[in-house]
């Protein structure tokens, strides 16, 4: 770009800006190729061995995967993931959207309310888990609070109920991310031209109708991003489970991530852990690659 071809000499090429760009980017590029792509491949390799506490490179084919899908604990983790992901995403999207629309009605103290909704995002999942664990504690938490108010039969023991433990994670994750979803939707709503509302009103549409028929369809790309982001977040949830239920009671609230960690670092089943990591990775790739592709294409279209 800097030299005027075709008579550029080697020296001019080497001192040009593109070469310097490459020089700057090369370390990051190499590091990324190694620690992202190389390491993922390495994990794939480990998953094809029978490694236990230490990597042992004896190839046993897809034995670990067969074992993985036969394991009850993995089945539960996968089932939990889908329960968790669908509820977490559904609740966050609905509540986030409603809150965003309500906040967009020129309400008083909008800034304060928005800040309150969003602060959980500044807190770590560990802290969130600890707070909810305390409140969901049947002996001293919300159950006791309601019973003390006179409803002695009130029961809210999800935390220690194997059938319900996964829903406590939904609740805490929703608490943490809902405000964030609200913020994304609010940004999307702020991007809608105010004249559109005026025009629709003159056409005789009421507010609910305007939102349902005009605004929400316009927010389709926002929905798409939000769902991808939340799905990705659900897939990689780990800290929250560790601090809230630690996968328990038993392993009733395990997710693939906690399964992976337990097998790899807790039980010395390196290959099995690697196989579960590969499953997680494949799911992430299936979601993220099309998303990134469409985002980059969109960016290029806009750039033209």
């Amino acid at each position: 770009m800097t030299t005027n071809n075709p008579r550029a000499t080697i020296r001019e090429i080497l001192t040009g800006w593109p070469s310097k760009s490459w020089l700057v980017l090369l370390p990051t590029l190499l590091v990324t190729l190694l620690v992202v792509y190389g390491y993922i491949l390495w994990t794939v390799v480990v998953s094809l061995t029978s490694s236990r506490f230490f990597p042992k490179y004896d190839f046993v084919g897809i034995e670990q995967y067969a074992k993985l899908w036969k394991a009850d604990r993995w089945q539960i983790a996968v089932d939990n993931l889908w329960i968790f992901a669908s509820l977490f995403i559904g609740l966050s999207v609905v509540a986030g959207l409603v809150l965003a629309i309500f906040l967009d009605q020129k309400v008083r103290l909008e800034n304060v309310i928005r800040s309150i909704y969003l602060y959980p995002m500044a807190i770590s999942f560990i802290v969130t888990g600890i707070a909810w664990k305390w409140m969901l504690n049947p002996g001293l938490g919300i159950q006791k609070l309601v019973r003390d108010m006179g409803y002695v039969d009130f029961k809210f023991d999800w935390l220690i109920n194997p059938k319900m433990a996964i829903y406590t994670i939904v609740l805490a994750a929703f608490w943490q991310s809902c405000g964030f979803v609200m913020a994304i939707f609010l940004a999307g709503l702020r991007g809608v031209d105010a004249e559109l509302f005026k025009a629709a009103r003159i056409d005789g549409a009421g507010l609910p109708r305007i939102y349902w028929s005009i605004v929400l369809p316009m927010l389709r790309p926002v929905f798409f991003s939000v769902i991808v982001i939340l799905l990705y977040q659900a897939l990689r949830s780990f800290d929250l489970i560790v601090s809230l239920t630690n996968g328990g009671p038993g392993f009733s609230s395990d997710l693939p991530t906690t399964f992976m960690y337990q097998y790899t670092f807790g039980r010395g089943q390196l290959a099995q852990g690697a196989a579960s990591a590969v499953m997680i990775t494949m799911t992430v790739i299936a979601i993220i690659v099309p998303y990134l592709y469409s985002e980059i294409r969109h960016e290029r279209r806009n750039a033209r």
Binding site: M1, T2, T3, N4, N5, P6
Partner: peptide, 11 residues
């Protein structure tokens, strides 16, 4: 841009 040297030229 070509006069300025910001755009490369072909010939």
């Amino acid at each position: 841009g070509a006069i300025a040297g910001l755009e490369p030229i072909s010939s």
